[in-house]
Amino acid sequence: MSATPPTGSPAGSAWTGDLAPEEHALRVRELIVEMCGSAEGGHLGGSMSLVEILVTLYRSVLRIDPAAPDDPERDVLLLSKGHGAIGLYAALAERGFFPAEDLATYGRPESLFSAHPNPAVPGVEMPTGSLGHGLPLGVGFALAARLDASPRRTFVLLGDGELQEGSNWEAAMAAGSLGLGRLVAVVDRNSLQITGPTENAVALEPLADRWHSFGWNVHEVDGHDIALLRATLDGIPYDADRPTVLIARTVKGRGLPYIEGQARSHYARLGERPKKRALAILRAQSRKAAQA
């Protein structure tokens, strides 16, 4: 049922990063931690689980131009799990939509960077945060692209707990029925929601079967493997008449071993010392990975 990820990418997207993918991911994580160190704190765990997905999309897959964020022919990315906003902001900064230094205002009064995506931020498409809105919007974007006979593609990043919202399944059914091949959903399957495992709240499994039965192509991938994410996203037959979903297996809080896989990582207000400790751990891990 779930297709094997393609090993090559015949029409593979270019890597736009000036650094190695892992370095970009590290910098995004550092920015996330910095924002969680603000007075307001931030959604740490679910942003950290998204990092490789965001870096892969923004540095490789998406046909976008930071100098022309409103280009009508751009690919569109909607962060349906709007609480991952600090991850999105960090990835947009890392892609060059605005200077990373701007994120220092996060958590201060009148900052452009609110805790859920603010469309006034360059590169942010829609305000999301109440869960279950991204996929219906994505169906609209994808339908518009089809009516325009445009190759524009629409990517929607969904949380897994978010899939308990019924509107997702209204949209999934519509997308399958309409055959929107240029619509791609990525589920951040970190398996946790605020109270604990998703399967202990309202079970989502068999998740791949569910998407498949709604008429979607389904890929299950390691959501922290940038090469695999790239190959899979590049291998999607965007011209075909079925939408595609990537169920990306991730770890909530990824990058900070002492909170990884823990529901309590959902929101953090890091004091100066915990922030410095987190940043040191991220860098040490990165050095270790580089040496390996």
Binding site: G132, P136, L137, G140, F141, A142, A144, S167, M173
Partner: peptide
């Protein structure tokens, strides 16, 4: 006829799809 789309009995999705279309330049 391509611009008549029956989205079925699902009104939340209906509103979201309309918003996506409008954001992409359509008048739904």
């Amino acid at each position: 006829s391509a611009r008549y789309v029956n989205l079925g009995i699902a009104e939340q999705n209906l509103m979201g799809v309309a918003a996506g279309l409008a954001k992409a330049g359509r008048l739904p």
